[in-house]
């Protein structure tokens, strides 16, 4: 594969399994849930990688694993080729300065009791990078970067005095104040109105251009991913089913789930040049009896009743950059 040899983030067969806690009184033993199943990804320096999937697809879990809010149950995460899967202590703290996250709900991700200045300057205090006066300068600079002007007017405000879009911009300011290499943006606009979302997209796009920040952009909307991302990965039930350049995925989707995602967009958002794929079954089929099967088997109109029900498809390379986990692809 002709990729640059040094991706910022490399994920190698990362898995996460949620095992239900056995508690007294729960009569039926619930099964462990596989939130992520051996996902492998490279994210290049300076790109915005879009991770697209429906609810419960494991996309948020992947983001949380990458910023080490949760522990993985297998596989490795490399940051600039250093294995960071099991780091702790000082190494973890150094890692925290380089990897940041923007959360989905700006109404919940800011501490209601802290001022905007306190919120944004906190990472600087934690990592003891600067004196007080440089802290003020830095906070003012990042707040201006995310579109607050004059920034000083917002220093002593509290989150509840701001709109959702403004709060999310504060959250972005906090994430970039330490000049991180890599930021996970977990559906940063799903709680916002269209006009505010657009502004957030522009800010992220500017950050990438001007400061070479690398992003993992998690979203449920292929339209948003199309607008913002260089490459897209599509995830379904914890399995990465397709990845490739954004244009390629939108114009020539290979996996039936990607096609279904494209079909699901309201007609106003569709590309008039694209056809309707119609890959989704009206009502889901039963799970096959075997232990190996394609994760999308139950909903796939194109599934082969023998092969798809008895084997788990691996990623097939359709071109140097585009691959999909479907027997029918290519």
């Amino acid at each position: 594969m002709n990729r640059s040899a040094h991706p910022v983030v490399r994920i190698d067969r990362l898995s996460k399994i949620y095992r239900p806690k056995r508690t007294l009184g729960s009569s039926h033993s619930s099964h462990p849930v596989i939130a992520l199943n051996q996902v492998s990804l490279d994210i290049e320096r300076g790109e915005i990688f879009g991770l697209v999937g429906g609810s419960g697809s494991g996309k948020t879990t992947l983001g949380r694993l990458l910023v080490k809010l949760e522990k993985s149950d297998g596989g490795k995460i490399y940051l600039s080729e250093n294995d960071t899967t099991r780091i702790r202590g000082q190494a973890l703290k150094a890692f925290r300065a380089k990897v940041q996250m923007i959360f989905q709900d700006p109404y919940q991700s800011l501490n209601p009791q802290l001022t905007i200045f306190d919120t944004v300057s906190e990472p600087l205090i934690i990592h003891k990078t600067s004196s007080r006066s440089t802290r003020i300068k830095k906070v003012r600079k990042v707040l201006t970067t995310v579109g607050f002007s004059p920034a000083e007017d917002y220093f002593s405000r509290y989150p509840h005095e701001l709109s959702g879009g403004q709060r999310q911009r504060v959250a972005i300011a906090r994430a970039i104040v330490l000049n991180p290499e890599f930021i996970v943006a977990d559906e940063p606009t799903s709680m916002l109105d269209a006009t505010n979302s657009f502004q957030i997209f522009n800010i992220l796009s500017d950050l990438r251009k001007k400061q070479r920040v690398t992003f993992l952009f998690i979203t449920h909307s292929l339209a948003a991913a199309n607008f913002l991302c260089d490459r897209i990965g599509v995830i379904y039930h914890g399995n990465l089913v397709e990845k490739g350049p954004a244009r390629q995925i939108i114009r020539h989707p290979a996996h039936p789930y990607t096609k279904a995602l494209l079909d699901a967009l309201p007609s106003y958002c569709q590309d008039p040049a694209c056809t309707f794929h119609n890959t989704l079954l009206e009502s889901p089929r039963d799970l096959p009896g075997s232990s190996h099967y394609c994760p999308f088997f139950t909903l796939c109109r194109e599934a082969d009743p023998y092969q798809c029900a008895s084997e788990t498809p691996n990623m097939i390379h359709l071109s140097a950059t585009h691959s999909a986990a479907c027997f029918k692809a290519g």
């Binding site: 925290r96 940041q100 996250m101 919940q108 800011l110 990472p123 934690i126 990592h127 906090r174 330490l178």
Partner: peptide, 17 residues
């Protein structure tokens, strides 16, 4: 479980903090 605590953890805040 509120995301602002997650956000603090991601910035590297100690348990004490």
């Amino acid at each position: 479980r509120r995301p602002f605590v997650d956000a603090a953890r991601v910035t590297g805040a100690s348990c004490f903090r």
